[in-house]
Lab assay of single mutants.
Amino acid sequence: RLYEREDHKGLMMELSEDCPSIQDRFHLSEIRSLHVLEGCWVLYELPNYRGRQYLLRPQEYRRCQDWGAMDAKAGSLRRV
């Protein structure tokens, strides 16, 4: 689950498959919190699986710093 605000607030989007462009699919370029329910995912800073990568394991991420990012920029997401 992807959230537009910290602490799992605001608009929530659910994802169960790879997403090459978060902007195209959800009209957002920033994700401020996440909740990974199962499996491991890689969040990429840019669309089409480019830029900085962040490995996400099943857990709650209340803010972008929790997954190691300096800002909430999110371009794509892929399951590993």
Rank of each mutant, 00 (worst) to 15 (best):
L11D: 09
D18K: 01
S76T: 05
G39Y: 05
R63D: 05
L55W: 12
L77P: 03
I31P: 00
D24A: 14
Q59D: 10
A74F: 05
P47D: 10
L56I: 06
Y61I: 02
R5D: 10
D71G: 11
E6W: 04
L56T: 04
Y3H: 05
Y3S: 04
C40G: 10
S21W: 01
D71V: 12
Q65I: 08
E4F: 08
E38M: 10
R25M: 11
D7K: 05
L37H: 08
V36W: 03
G51H: 03
L15S: 02
D71C: 14
A69D: 04
A72M: 00
R5S: 11
L15M: 07
G10D: 03
R1D: 02
Q23Y: 10
P47Q: 08
Q53E: 15
Y54C: 04
Q23D: 08
D66R: 02
L11W: 08
C64S: 08
M70W: 09
Q53R: 12
R52P: 12
Q23N: 14
A74Q: 02
L2S: 02
Y44P: 01
D7H: 10
Q53P: 11
L37S: 07
L28T: 05
E14N: 07
S16T: 11
R32D: 01
R32L: 07
E4Y: 04
L37V: 14
M12D: 02
Q23G: 12
L37M: 11
G39S: 10
R62N: 04
S33G: 02
R57H: 14
E38H: 12
E38G: 10
E17L: 06
Y54F: 12
Q59T: 09
M70P: 15
R25N: 06
Y61E: 04
A74E: 05
L2D: 01
R5H: 15
L55Y: 15
E30A: 11
G75T: 00
I31C: 02
K9R: 11
R78S: 11
L43I: 09
M12G: 08
E6M: 04
L46G: 09
L55D: 07
R62L: 13
L37E: 06
Y44K: 07
L46Q: 09
A69F: 06
R52E: 08
E30T: 10
C40K: 10
L77G: 03
S21R: 07
L56A: 01
Q65L: 11
F26C: 08
L77A: 06
H35M: 10
F26M: 13
R25K: 13
L55T: 15
Y44A: 04
S29I: 07
R25W: 11
L56K: 02
E60M: 11
E60C: 10
H27K: 11
A72I: 03
W41R: 05
E6A: 08
E60F: 06
S76R: 04
C19P: 01
H27R: 14
L15G: 00
E4N: 09
V36A: 03
L11P: 14
E30H: 15
E6V: 06
Y3P: 02
I22Y: 05
E45V: 06
Y54W: 07
E38T: 09
C40T: 15
S16V: 15
D71T: 15
A74W: 04
S29C: 09
K9S: 09
R32T: 03
S29N: 14
L43R: 00
M12Y: 13
N48C: 08
E45W: 04
N48T: 02
L56E: 01
Q65S: 14
Y61R: 00
E60P: 11
R52V: 11
L28A: 11
G75V: 02
L43F: 04
D18W: 00
L2M: 08
M70F: 09
L2G: 01
L37I: 13
L11K: 14
W67M: 02
G39A: 05
G75C: 06
P20T: 07
Q23K: 14
L11Y: 09
Y61F: 09
L37G: 03
M13I: 11
R57N: 15
C40Y: 08
S33M: 04
G68L: 06
S21A: 06
R52W: 06
M13W: 14
E60S: 14
K9M: 15
I31S: 04
E38P: 04
V36Q: 04
N48V: 01
H27I: 03
S21Q: 05
L46D: 07
V80F: 12
Q59S: 12
D66L: 06
E30C: 12
V36C: 02
S33R: 01
R62D: 05
I31E: 00
Q65P: 04
G51S: 00
I31G: 00
R57G: 11
R25L: 10
L56P: 01
L55Q: 13
Y61H: 01
Q65G: 13
D24C: 08
D7C: 09
L43N: 04
G10I: 04
P20E: 12
I22L: 13
L34R: 00
L56Q: 02
L11I: 12
E14S: 09
R1K: 13
K73S: 11
E17Y: 06
C19M: 03
I22R: 03
H35A: 13
R50L: 13
H27L: 10
S16W: 12
E17Q: 12
E45D: 09
S16D: 14
E4P: 08
K9H: 10
R50I: 10
M70V: 14
L2T: 05
A74R: 00
P47M: 02
S16I: 12
C64T: 10
Q65A: 13
Y54S: 05
I31Q: 00
D66C: 06
E14G: 06
V36R: 00
D24F: 03
R25D: 07
D66W: 04
G51R: 05
L2A: 06
R57I: 05
F26K: 02
S16L: 08
M12S: 10
R52F: 05
E30R: 10
M12L: 09
D18M: 06
L56V: 09
Y44E: 00
M12C: 08
E60R: 14
R50G: 15
E38F: 10
A69C: 05
K73A: 13
Y54I: 07
E45Q: 10
R62Q: 12
E38V: 09
L11G: 12
V36E: 01
K73E: 06
S33I: 06
Y54R: 01
K9C: 12
H8R: 12
K73Y: 08
D18A: 06
G39L: 01
Q59F: 07
L55R: 14
L28K: 14
E60L: 14
R57P: 15
P58T: 12
R63T: 15
L46R: 11
L56R: 02
E6N: 07
E6S: 06
V36Y: 00
R32S: 06
R57M: 08
R63I: 04
M70D: 15
L28H: 07
D24I: 04
L77T: 05
Y44C: 07
R62W: 13
D66I: 04
R25G: 05
E4S: 14
A72V: 05
Y3N: 04
R63A: 13
P47S: 10
R50W: 04
G68A: 04
E6P: 07
D71Q: 11
P47E: 11
L28E: 07
Y61L: 01
L15F: 11
L15Y: 04
L56M: 05
D24Y: 08
E60Q: 15
Q59H: 09
L55M: 14
H27C: 12
